[in-house]
Design a protein around this nucleic acid. Structure first.
Lengths: 204, 204
DNA sequence: GAGAATCTAAACTGACCGGTTTAGTTAAAT
DNA sequence: ATTTAACTAAACCGGTCAGTTTAGATTCTC
């Protein structure tokens, strides 16, 4: 008996989660039927219900795992030692690459839509979304200030401002369906503009 | 026969729209049942269906009207003649006052959630939401640049950046349910920070 | 290979929902 | 006062969905 057997009672646990993720992300919470999920997972409905007491908890688990996964991935490529313009440009591209991805959008949409039905979901997403970005940026900014490369009084505010600057123009267009993808040039315009504005305020 | 009788065939048209708005904003598109709407509107289901061929079109009409109404309201108080710090601070407070309102939030949530089911909805919201803000700001910035109070190369980018700066920190917390309202001090911190950063970049 | 745990397919329950219909009532126009 | 347009309440239809049950098949363990 392995350790996780206490939680994952059977061998098809992962199949269920994978199928649920796929269908939930495609159709949303209400749009996804449990029969669809079971079919997608290649599992009987009874098996699914032997793992999760109801649809709501299955959804929560999918969302939680997905947020976790993305937070980890986002944190992977951070270099605290580079000078501000370079580091910020790089962070911005990573950040946008994620929130503009199909997966990132779907998760955002789902969290916004369902976060009053599932208050935990919103909090969870915030923790492993905006909060991760803020922490990563803050620690970089702190290091850069210590090196005398930046001058910042309110570190958290500076981090949040930079994140917001990166979304200018593009994010609303994406989220409300006016565009579905952007050229390198469009992204560079925003990122360079964000870095420029940030440096104008906080550059040493 | 009045002019609007061609469109509003009967006397309870407004009742239906009012009831629909209330229920849709409270429960979302899927969550709202037509029976609920009819009950809330104080109207029979048959009457409701005599005005609108189906639930989807009723929803679209409610959303359209609501977006229009808010766009008009937002544009009311703009003073193109004031100096940047004052004008921007004022715009920021108006802007935040709206997007932080209960109504503003609900509409945003609804548009995000349903804008792949109803592509028109997203576009409509964008036109009478972000786009209105951008146009208003752009025209102010243009005037201020002409007066020599600001120096801006990409007007649209500057406008979008300012709007984004105003949402730093607060907006994600609100939208993901970490907080439901903010103190004056919390808002001032963000608005002042936004104006400061904007002026650092674009001040003449 | 026996027994226990896990899984399956499919039928079923009970509830809800969008939309229609019916038979009759209220209000407005002439 | 009569006609006509708008409205009502309630039953009804076809369909979907979450969740349960059943009877049996598969897989794992020892």
């Amino acid at each position: 008996m392995t350790a996780e057997a206490l939680v994952r009672k059977g061998r098809k646990f992962d199949q269920v989660l994978d199928g649920a993720r796929e269908v939930f992300l495609r159709d949303g919470f209400e749009g996804a039927s449990v029969d669809d999920i079971a079919r997608q997972a290649g599992v009987s409905k009874a098996t699914l219900y032997s793992y999760f007491p109801d649809k709501r908890l299955l959804f929560m688990e999918v969302a939680r795992a997905q947020c976790q996964h993305q937070a980890d991935e986002a944190l992977a490529s951070f270099d605290l030692t580079r000078p501000p313009r370079e580091a910020l440009t790089r962070v911005a591209h990573t950040f946008l690459g994620f929130i503009f991805s199909d997966m990132g959008q779907r998760i955002f949409r789902m969290c916004v839509a369902e976060s009053d039905r599932f208050p935990e979901l919103g909090r969870n997403f915030y923790e492993s979304g905006p909060m991760v970005m803020r922490r990563a940026l803050t620690s970089y900014l702190t290091a850069a200030v210590a090196r005398g490369e930046l001058r910042i009084d309110d570190m958290a505010l500076a981090a949040d401002q930079f994140a917001e600057l990166c979304k200018a123009d593009l994010w609303p267009k994406l989220i409300f369906g006016l565009k579905t993808r952007f050229t390198e040039a469009e992204i560079d315009r925003i990122v360079d503009g964000a870095v420029e504005t940030f440096m104008a305020r906080y550059g040493a």
